[in-house]
C-alpha cells in the first residue's frame, strides 16, 4: 500500500499557510520601525518634559522671594537684614538670606544688560527664602512675620510661575503623547494598506482556502499573525534605535540628560520595552479589521 520511506515526524511542523516571505516585507518593516522609533522618542520627550516640569515646580514651590521697602530712616540693607531675621524664625522656612546689591543687579542682567549699573538706579533689595519642602510656610505666614517685625515688604511665593510651569509641563506631555498616538495611527494605516496589498497578492491562496471551507476569521488570523510578527520585529528595531539614540544623547548631555531643560533618566529608556508588543497589537488589530472587511465583500 505505502510507497513512502520512513518519515521522521519528530521534527516535522506544518508549514505556514501564507508564504513565509513577501518582497514587500523589508520596506514594511523599515517603515513601521521608523514609526516605532518616532513613537519611542515622543514618549522619551514626554517623560523628560514631565520630569523637567516636576523639577521646576518643586524648585519654585520650595522657595519664595521677598522684596523689601525700607521705611523712613532705614537703609535698605538694614531693612533687608531685619526681614531675613524675621523670616528665618518662621516655621516652614529653612533659610532666609539677603541678596546684596550685586546679586540683585545680576538678576536684572537679562533685562538691563551686562555692565556697571548707575549708582542712583533704585534696585530692589531682595531676601531669598528657602522653604521646608515637607511643610513649606505659606505666603500668609511670611507676610504675618514681616508685619510683626515692622518690615514693609512684598512676598512672592512663586505660585503664579508654578501654575505656568505646571501648565507648560502638561502641554508638553500632551503634545508628546499626541504625537505618539498619531504615529500609532500612521502605523495602523500602513499595516492596513499592507494587508490589502497582501490579500490582493494572495487572492489565489485566499480563494483556495475559502473554497476548502475556511471561515473569514481563519483567513484573517493568517494575516493578523503575519503582520503582528512583522510589526513586533519592526517595533524591536525601532525601540532599539530609539534607546541607542536617547542613550547617546544622555551620555553626551551629562548627568542632566538631554539638556538641563529636558532631563532624561536612564530608567526612562525602559519605556521603550513595550514597543514591540504594542506594535504587534496595533498591527494585529489593523490587519484583522482590514482582512475581515475585505473578505466580507467576497462571495
Amino acid at each position: 500500500m505505502s510507497d513512502a520511506p520512513a518519515q521522521d515526524w519528530s521534527r516535522w511542523r506544518p508549514a505556514p499557510l501564507l508564504p513565509r516571505r513577501d518582497g514587500r516585507d523589508g520596506s514594511l518593516v523599515f517603515v513601521v520601525a521608523v514609526l516605532c522609533f518616532l513613537a519611542c522618542i515622543a514618549v522619551f520627550a514626554a517623560l523628560a518634559a514631565d520630569r523637567a516640569a516636576r523639577g521646576w515646580g518643586e524648585e519654585l514651590a520650595a522657595s519664595a522671594t521677598v522684596q523689601v521697602r525700607p521705611r523712613a530712616g532705614q537703609t535698605d540693607s538694614e531693612a533687608a537684614a531685619l526681614a531675613a531675621e524675621a523670616l528665618a524664625g518662621v516655621k516652614g522656612v529653612s533659610e532666609a538670606s539677603t541678596l546684596d546689591r550685586e546679586d540683585a543687579a545680576r538678576l536684572l542682567e537679562p533685562w538691563l544688560g551686562h555692565g556697571e549699573m548707575p549708582e542712583d538706579l533704585p534696585i530692589p533689595r531682595l531676601v531669598a527664602v528657602d522653604l521646608d519642602p515637607a511643610a513649606p510656610a505659606t505666603a500668609a505666614q511670611l507676610n504675618a512675620a514681616l508685619a510683626a517685625a515692622g518690615v514693609d515688604a512684598i512676598v512672592d511665593d512663586h505660585s503664579r510661575w508654578l501654575t505656568e510651569v505646571q501648565r507648560a509641563g502638561a502641554l508638553a506631555r500632551a503634545a508628546a503623547l499626541g504625537a505618539g498616538a498619531l504615529v500609532a495611527a500612521a502605523a495602523a494605516a500602513v499595516i492596513a494598506f499592507a494587508t490589502r496589498a497582501g490579500l490582493a497578492a494572495r487572492r489565489e491562496v485566499v480563494e483556495v482556502l475559502h473554497l476548502t471551507g475556511a471561515v473569514d476569521s481563519f483567513v484573517a488570523d493568517l494575516f493578523q499573525r503575519r503582520f503582528a510578527a512583522l510589526a513586533a520585529r519592526a517595533g524591536l528595531y525601532g525601540a532599539l534605535a530609539a534607546v541607542i539614540s536617547a542613550g547617546l544623547v544622555r551620555l553626551l548631555g551629562g548627568s542632566e540628560g538631554f539638556t538641563p531643560a529636558l532631563p532624561l533618566a536612564w530608567t526612562d529608556l525602559l519605556a521603550a520595552l513595550p514597543c514591540p508588543l504594542l506594535a504587534a497589537i496595533v498591527a494585529a488589530a489593523a490587519a484583522r479589521h482590514t482582512a475581515i472587511s475585505l473578505l466580507r465583500t467576497q462571495t
Binding site: M1, S2, D3, A4, P5, R13, P14, L17
Partner: peptide, 28 residues
C-alpha cells in the same frame, strides 16, 4: 489543508495524510 482548516491538529491528521498520499502513489 482541508483538515487544518477543519481544525484538526497535526497529530490527528498526519497518519491519514501520509496514507492517502501513498494511496495516490505520492508516498515518496
Amino acid at each position: 489543508l482541508p483538515l487544518r482548516i477543519a481544525g484538526q491538529k497535526p497529530d490527528e491528521y498526519r497518519a491519514d495524510v501520509a496514507e492517502l498520499l501513498a494511496w495516490v502513489g505520492l508516498g515518496a
